[in-house]
């Protein structure tokens, strides 16, 4: 009888540990999608769903997200590739996966070595004799890059620059705080800051985009807002004057 009970407990503990493991791998597994399959006409499965979903979001695809790689999907992939300077072969390989915003080589976030390099990069100040409105300083560049990474993950490079430009435009606008930190940490201003996602290590492209913004580039033509129309947004936001669209974001003054 005693043995029975022990076994019983052992089972419970085992099941518990196992489910914990499954849960954990579920949590972290999503971040570590190291390899995506190459997809082509006739492919099926959840990877196809991912592609269809992204293409639909970005307006390349208007069919159903059904996980079947058919004619419509192929055509959408082709026009996406054409627009992004890829070989328009209708095959979703590494490059296309990457341009779709999925990480191909290992984990982009959670690589601590890269972060160290960047910390070393973060000394010294920049200066410009022409304008003191956008003073240079790599600490600020890094902060900006973090929020760009949080807000514009999976966006094309230009979309990242645009998101950063909105923050700098806010610094220079009278209706917002007049410092970069003030703008970034204003309550309810940026979703990824509110939910802490911006605290993850930044990727190389976001840092590059932040530098481009600090150097004065502004593809938004002075926009102060951006939003993702596919998410729930307040009707109020549509009363802004739209200046342009990039990727899944709309920009407005």
């Amino acid at each position: 009888m005693k043995k029975h009970l022990e076994q019983y407990f052992l089972h419970i503990i085992l099941v518990f540990l196992l489910s914990l493991g499954v849960f954990a791998s579920f949590l972290f597994g999503q971040q570590a999608v190291a390899q995506n399959k190459t997809l082509y006409w006739g492919s099926t499965g959840s990877d196809v769903n991912k592609v269809q979903y992204k293409l639909r979001q970005w307006g390349y695809y208007n069919g159903p997200v059904d996980g079947v790689y058919g004619a419509k999907t192929s055509q959408a992939v082709r026009s996406f590739q054409l627009r992004n300077g890829l070989n328009p072969d209708g095959v979703v390989g590494n490059n296309t996966w990457e341009r779709l915003g999925y990480q191909v080589r290992g984990t982009a976030w959670g690589a601590p070595r890269q972060q160290e390099n960047r910390a070393q990069d973060a000394n010294g100040e920049r200066w410009s004799p022409e304008t003191n409105a956008r003073t240079r300083d790599t600490n600020r560049t890094y902060l900006l890059a973090k929020v760009i990474a949080g807000e514009a993950r999976g966006e094309p490079y230009l979309g990242k620059v645009a998101v950063g430009a909105v923050m700098m435009n806010r610094v220079q606008s009278s209706a917002f705080p007049n410092t970069l930190a003030g703008v970034i940490y204003q309550p309810m201003a940026f979703e990824s800051v509110s939910n802490g996602q911006y605290a993850r290590p930044v990727d190389e492209e976001s840092l590059k985009a932040a530098r481009q913004v600090m150097n004065g580039w502004d593809p938004t033509n002075g926009a102060l807002f951006f939003w993702n129309p596919s998410k729930r947004v307040s009707p109020w936001i549509w009363s802004r004057n739209i200046t342009m669209r990039i990727g899944k974001h709309v920009f407005g003054i």
């Binding site: 054409l82 627009r83 300077g85 070989n87 002075g222 926009a223 342009m244």
Partner: peptide
């Protein structure tokens, strides 16, 4: 695309091509 704001503009993307195929990422300009 079109860009509004204080300097209204056309957004133009230029794709470098080789042998009839896109050879690089596009150059974007306003």
């Amino acid at each position: 695309g079109n860009v509004e704001g204080n300097i209204p503009a056309y957004r133009v993307e230029i794709v470098p091509r080789q042998n009839g195929e896109a050879a690089d990422r596009p150059v974007v300009m306003d």
